[in-house]
Design a protein around this nucleic acid. Structure first.
Length: 109
DNA sequence: TGAATGACTTCGG
DNA sequence: CCCGAAGCCATTC
């Protein structure tokens, strides 16, 4: 089995995302020290949904676009989850993304 | 061992 | 301003 060190870190950060907040793959990757490995963050999310319960719906790309939505169970499940948390989303894109953006590098120690 | 993939990001035309 | 291509790193076949 492969090492889950990287994934484990991603899970930790994703779980620490506060309610009604969102972050980007690049931000998490950079926080983990793996700047440039933004794809791996998404990869970790893919694995997270299989075993752990990680709020992957709170993780979006740099544009605040729900790119990972295509990998969710439902079509609008990810969007509904965000809206349920008070995040305004339209056309798979978060409205006022900067307002809901939560940077682990700035928020987490 | 090497090649391919991927829920991103950035630069160039 | 909009679209396309390359780069990145870790995991998987």
């Amino acid at each position: 089995m492969a090492k889950e060190g990287f994934f484990e870190k991603v899970y930790e950060v994703a779980k620490q995302i506060p309610y009604g907040k969102v972050t980007s793959y690049g931000a998490i990757a950079r926080y983990l020290g793996a700047a440039g490995s933004a794809r791996m963050v998404g990869w970790a999310m893919n694995a997270s949904g299989k075993d752990l319960e990680v709020p992957a719906h709170r993780v979006v790309n740099r544009q605040g676009l729900l790119t990972g939505k295509h990998h969710f169970k439902g079509t609008h499940l990810m969007q509904q989850l965000l809206e349920n948390e008070g995040v305004e989303v339209k056309e798979n894109q978060i409205q006022g993304f900067e307002k809901y953006f939560w940077d682990p590098i700035k928020e987490l120690p």
